[in-house]
C-alpha cells in the first residue's frame, strides 16, 4: 500500500504561495506557527498533503502605521505584540487577549493571523479519528447531526479566537490577498456563524495584516472564562471597548460559532446592551462549563466590564 506523498513547501512570496495553493486546492494548508494546524492534522480533524509554510514571508511580519491605521503584520507572534509600543499604548486589550491564549511557549510560535483564523472547536469534534468514529461522526466531520445538541442540523462549534474578540471590539480591519488580488474588510465580516464553515474567506487567501484605527483613545476591558489560568481555550471571552466618540462595542467569543457583536453608545441603556449580547449568543452544551453558567457569565463579565469602564456603577 502506498502512503500518499506529503510535501512541505516554503514559498518565497505571497503570489508563489497562492499559486502553489491553487495547484493543490483540495489538499493544502498554509501554516505560520502551526500550533493549531498541526494538532488538528494529528487528530485527523484536517487533512493536507501539502503544507505551505508562509512563516518566512518577511512582508507579513512588519508592524507599521499607514493612513491612520496601525497595520499589524499577520505573522506577528502573539508574544511579540506586547513588545510594540503603539499596541501597548493604544490597543493594550489586544495584548491582554493575546496573553490569554494557550501557553507562553506556544505564544512564541503562534501568530496573530493564525489566531484569528483558528478553527472553531467543540468537545465532540476536537478528538482523534478513532474517537469520532466511536461517538458517530458529527456534522462538522461529515456526520448527519450535531451531537452536542443531541441531534440538531446546525453545527454550534465555538468560535475561540481570543485576539479576534479584542480586535473586533476595536473595529479592526483585515487585509488579505487571494488569487484575485488584495482585499480589505472589517474583521467581523469574515465570520459566517456556520460552525462547519465558520469563515467566508477563500482557503487560498493569505492574511497580510490586521489594521487598527489610530487615535481613537480606546478604553477596553477583556475577560476570559477558563478553569486554569494557562493552557486553555476559551469558555467565554468578552471584550468591551469605548472609543473617543462614545461608541461602544461589545464582542463575545466562545458562545457562538462566530464572534457575537453588539454596538451601542455610552448614552444607551447599558443593561439593554448586555441583554442583547446574551440574547444573540447561541450557546450549547459543548464546553466544560454548562450552557446556563456560560450564559450567566456573559452578564457578569459585561457588568464588570462596564463598571470598570465607569459606565455603570
Amino acid at each position: 500500500m502506498l502512503v500518499s506523498e506529503k510535501k512541505y513547501i516554503i514559498p518565497k512570496s505571497i503570489s508563489e504561495a497562492i499559486n502553489i495553493a491553487l495547484e493543490h486546492k483540495d489538499c493544502f494548508k498554509y501554516i505560520a506557527g502551526g500550533t493549531d494546524a498541526i494538532v488538528n492534522k494529528f487528530q485527523g480533524n484536517d487533512f493536507f498533503d501539502y503544507i505551505i509554510d508562509i512563516s518566512g514571508l518577511k512582508e507579513l511580519s512588519e508592524i507599521k502605521t499607514e493612513n491612520g491605521f496601525l497595520k499589524i503584520g499577520s505573522l506577528t507572534t502573539l508574544d511579540n505584540l506586547q513588545k510594540n509600543h503603539i499596541i501597548k499604548n493604544e490597543f493594550n486589550v489586544l495584548i491582554e487577549a493575546a496573553n490569554a491564549v494557550a501557553s507562553p511557549v506556544i505564544r512564541k510560535s503562534a501568530t496573530l493571523g493564525g489566531n484569528i483564523l483558528c478553527e472553531n472547536r467543540c468537545s465532540f469534534y476536537n478528538q482523534t479519528e478513532w474517537w469520532r468514529e466511536s461517538v458517530g461522526y458529527c456534522l462538522k466531520c461529515e456526520g448527519d447531526i450535531c451531537i452536542a445538541t443531541g441531534g440538531k442540523k446546525n453545527c454550534f462549534s465555538k468560535f475561540v479566537s481570543d485576539t479576534a474578540v479584542a480586535l473586533i471590539s476595536m473595529n479592526a480591519e483585515i487585509e488579505y490577498t487571494d488569487e484575485d488580488g488584495n482585499k480589505k474588510s472589517l474583521l467581523e465580516s469574515i465570520y459566517t456563524g456556520d460552525g462547519v464553515n465558520p469563515r467566508e474567506f477563500k482557503k487560498t487567501s493569505i492574511v497580510r495584516s490586521i489594521n487598527l484605527p489610530l487615535n481613537q483613545n480606546f478604553k477596553s476591558v477583556f475577560y476570559k472564562l477558563r478553569q486554569r489560568e494557562s493552557l486553555e481555550f476559551s469558555s467565554l471571552s468578552t471584550a468591551v471597548t469605548v472609543n473617543n466618540s462614545g461608541k461602544i462595542r461589545i464582542v463575545l467569543g466562545a458562545v457562538d460559532p462566530m464572534p457575537v457583536c453588539v454596538k451601542g453608545k455610552v448614552e444607551d441603556n447599558i443593561e439593554d446592551l448586555i441583554k442583547q449580547s446574551v440574547k444573540k449568543s447561541r450557546i450549547v452544551e459543548n464546553d466544560v462549563y454548562s450552557r446556563k453558567y456560560r450564559k450567566d457569565m456573559i452578564s457578569v463579565f459585561l457588568n464588570k466590564s462596564f463598571k470598570k469602564l465607569g459606565l455603570i456603577s
Partner: peptide, 21 residues
C-alpha cells in the same frame, strides 16, 4: 464520559494545574 466514551483524553482538556494555578 459521553455514553462510555472518555471525552477529555488529553492534557488540554484533562486539567492538571499549571504553575499559575
Amino acid at each position: 464520559y459521553y455514553n462510555g466514551l472518555l471525552v477529555n483524553n488529553n492534557f488540554l482538556d484533562y486539567k492538571i494545574p499549571t504553575t499559575l494555578d
